[in-house]
């Protein structure tokens, strides 16, 4: 892991990884969408509207996965003062926030025909809304200081504090009897879903994950480059003064 602390080595490593996540995203995404939205059969109860889950479930999974990645990167940044980890956490935050927003939005779209309401204050929905606020708070805190290093470390502490929300999201559907249905895929007795719908859903999740990795790598590299430019500019100014 310490080998990764060197931005140059990180750049080389991601040069190697990037095509392996970017190309599959580009190729698999159309297949997954076509399979999910056209080939997969309509639900006997919910009709065509159930197809929203093919976007909703991957987005919701990525929303909490991104937070987990952000919290882990923050932990590494705090403990080992790992520069790339710090940049990574900041780079993941907007991705996670957008996935959370998509999950909330598609959930509302699905809730209107199925539950008869756009929004209910049940435990799952509320805890995901808190997750969204945590992302916003993280980004706001990160940029709230004159000294960027101070903001980065303060935001890392907040990311770790907010991690208590993750198990609450995961188990909210089991601990409280909520309107949101309990886990369908990850359960002890196997997925409670017909394979004709399960496989396109799993493919959509895979695509979401690959897409996230691609964007994540690109954003981290962007931030590293931005830092480098800022440093070069400072150095140039220093030389001009001297």
């Amino acid at each position: 892991m310490h080998a990764l602390a060197n931005p140059l080595r990180f750049q080389k490593l991601t040069d190697a990884i990037l095509p392996w996540v970017a190309w599959p995203t580009a190729v698999l995404a159309p297949i997954a969408f076509y399979w999910a939205l056209v080939i997969a059969p309509a639900d006997y109860q919910q009709g065509e509207a159930y197809r929203i889950i093919f976007v909703h479930v991957p987005a919701a999974w990525m929303a909490s996965f991104a937070y987990l990645a952000m919290a882990a990167a923050s932990f590494v940044a705090l403990v080992w003062r790992h520069p790339v980890a710090e940049v990574s956490a900041r780079a993941i935050a907007p991705i996670g926030a957008v996935f959370t927003a998509i999950a909330l939005f598609t959930g509302a779209l699905w809730g209107k025909p199925m539950w008869g309401t756009w929004w209910v204050w049940d435990a799952r929905l509320t805890s995901v809304l808190i997750l969204f606020f945590l992302y916003l708070g993280y980004m706001a805190l990160h940029d709230a200081f004159e000294d960027p290093a101070r903001g980065a470390r303060a935001a890392s502490i907040l990311a770790l504090v907010g991690a208590v929300n993750l198990p609450i999201i995961r188990f909210s559907v089991d601990w409280w009897s909520t309107l949101h249905q309990p886990a369908t895929i990850l359960r002890a007795d196997g997925p409670a879903m017909d394979p004709s719908m399960l496989y396109p859903l799993l493919l959509m999740i895979l695509v979401a994950k690959l897409y996230m990795l691609t964007v994540m790598i690109l954003r981290i590299r962007l931030q590293l480059t931005e830092r480098k430019i800022a440093n070069l500019r400072l150095a140039a100014e220093g030389r001009a003064e001297a």
């Binding site: 805190l141 709230a144 200081f145 101070r150």
Partner: peptide
């Protein structure tokens, strides 16, 4: 966390 920040109260 917000000691010495620019927009303390709202944040």
């Amino acid at each position: 966390l917000l000691l010495g920040s620019r927009r303390g109260a709202v944040l």
